[in-house]
Amino acid sequence: MTALEASGRNAVPAVEKSTAGTRPAHPASDHPRRATARKWAEIALFVGPALALFLTFVVYPVVSAARYSMYKWNGVSQFSDAEFIGFDNYARALWGGSDPATHQAFRTAYTEPFWEALSHNFAIIFLSLAIQLPLALIVALTLNRKFRGRAFTRVVIFAPYVLSEVIAGTMWLIIFDPNGVATQWMRAIGLDMPAGGWFEDPTWGFWTVFFIITWKYVGLAIILFLAGLSGVSEDLQEAAAIDGASWWQIQWRINIPLIGPTIRIWAFLSIIGSIQLFDMVWVLNRGGTAGQYSTIASYMMEIGFFRSDWGYGSAIAVIMFFLSFVIALAYMATILRRDNAHPRKAA
């Protein structure tokens, strides 16, 4: 499948390009002022449309959400009639607010589900790095050789990632139905489904969903890693083999370090994706009847949209935005920094 391979190969140069960061040389000019004006005209021409779109569809909604989050607003009445309540919506989500009359009620009804949803996001981040990363690495290293049916294997591995979330989610709903295939297989080997059902069991629901998320997204990691590996010079591996390095030593000392930038980029995408995880948990059953596998995004949708608590929902959205933003910046500044600072070191 050439398209896939092509996209796989492209992934590496993309990483390299972002790490290269070379500055274009200033062309010598006899008319610096005219050149400056022209430069600005060029910038306006090329950046203008994109900037306008960005301001309209990214910045403006973010600012609006921040504004809505300061109001008590049911989404039905005119926003101009909504009551300004400052940071009360945030307080309700984060610790239940300081009003003793409602503190306890808010803690149980809002703070706990909020933190539960957030804890699921962080559990998914952690589990992705702890389970998906090694799994994807092992598969990628194993597949990183020429064999018959390589393209086909890659397509199969990548297929879940290409499937639409709604279709994949509906498929798993059928498989994990209380009377579905998964249950029959478990019964065939003498076990049973979790007591509350695959998705709705308070303990196991989250793990069923994590299994599906892994199934869905591990293909991306494998394809990225394979693309990275294809950029590792075979000379290095042959030289190491001549020097007597075992297969494991070659992987551990040569291949894995050399695809480090790819791994770090994947981890970045995975972390941000985990914070924003929504479609799959929503399709399965809106984060579970009791929030068994809720995420901060599904929680936002449930309360903001379906309960018409728009101010509070906006506050959750802003918290989610803030989290993604801070984590992305921190990751850029620390872990991705080495890739940016030493472009030569990148594979």
Partner: peptide
């Protein structure tokens, strides 16, 4: 409790 909490909002 959940109804009372929601009513308070």
């Amino acid at each position: 409790d959940a109804m009372i909490a929601a009513a308070a909002t």
